[in-house]
Simulated scan of single mutants.
Amino acid sequence: MRTLIVYGTVEGQTRKIADAVKAHLQEAGEEVVLVDTSERTGTMSFDGVDRVILAASVHERRHPKPFEVFVASSRDDLSRRPTLFLSVSLKAAFADGREEAQEYVDEMKLRTGLNPTMELLVPGAIRSESYDFYAAQVLRHVVLAGQDVDPSARDHEFTDWDALKAAVTRFLTDTATAKEPETGH
């Protein structure tokens, strides 16, 4: 089967996630096409695509604009294929932040009309060298408020690679079963 992975990233963690998902799919014998929405202009053909995995990071409560534009403009094509949406955020790393992380997904689905087959909140990463003073303060006092993490001390990756791999495997299994021809009658 052919899987299209479309991602939007700001600091690079979502690209790392998309690459890991691609490698996992290829190990399972899948043909994979990987697309970065920040590098896309114009429309894209979905011919020959059996399923889609969308992955995007959250910054300032939103997924990247080019990613959301892609999703909104591809809504019809996406609705005809099994779709897994991976929303990458720091809020997803903490039990008390998961509700807010889900709000980011719900708001994006309202803006774009996306109705994925499956969705997963994926914990992101802190890239200390990526933040100016203001961004570091917002990260520390808003995004990570109440958490025992110092974003200025070092980079920290919260992504649970085993959970991600298990979710992608579940998506592959569920969509492969749905595509098998019925037998009997």
Rank of each mutant, 00 (worst) to 15 (best):
R2H: 15
L4N: 03
I5D: 03
I5T: 04
I5Y: 01
V6L: 04
G8L: 02
E11M: 10
G12C: 08
Q13C: 04
Q13N: 11
T14E: 09
R15H: 07
R15N: 06
I17C: 02
K22W: 02
K22F: 00
E27H: 08
E27V: 09
G29S: 01
E30T: 01
E30K: 08
E31N: 10
E31K: 13
V32D: 04
L34K: 03
L34H: 05
D36L: 03
S38E: 06
T43I: 02
M44I: 14
S45E: 07
S45P: 05
F46A: 00
V49P: 04
V49E: 06
V52Y: 11
V52C: 12
I53T: 07
L54N: 04
A55P: 11
A56K: 05
S57L: 00
S57T: 12
S57W: 00
V58R: 09
R61W: 03
H63M: 14
P64F: 06
E68M: 15
V69N: 10
V71I: 13
V71H: 08
A72D: 08
S73M: 15
S73A: 15
R75N: 03
R75M: 07
D76C: 00
D77K: 10
D77N: 11
L78I: 10
R80Q: 12
R81S: 06
L86I: 02
V88R: 14
S89A: 15
S89D: 12
A93C: 07
A93P: 09
F94G: 01
R98H: 05
E99D: 15
E100Q: 13
E100Y: 09
E100I: 07
A101Q: 11
Q102C: 00
Q102I: 00
Q102H: 08
E103F: 07
Y104A: 11
Y104G: 08
V105C: 01
V105Y: 01
V105K: 03
D106T: 15
E107D: 12
M108K: 02
L110N: 09
T112Q: 03
L114T: 04
T117V: 04
T117I: 05
E119I: 02
E119Y: 13
L121V: 07
P123A: 15
S128C: 06
E129P: 10
E129L: 11
Y131W: 12
F133H: 06
Y134Q: 12
Y134C: 04
A135R: 15
A135Y: 10
A136P: 03
A136G: 13
V138C: 07
H141R: 08
V143F: 07
A145D: 13
Q147M: 02
D148L: 13
D150P: 14
D150V: 14
P151S: 09
P151R: 12
S152C: 03
S152L: 11
E157F: 08
F158S: 05
F158R: 03
T159Y: 06
D160T: 05
D162T: 14
L164G: 07
L164F: 05
A166E: 13
V168G: 01
D174N: 04
D174C: 01
D174Y: 01
A178D: 14
K179A: 15
T183L: 15
G184Y: 07
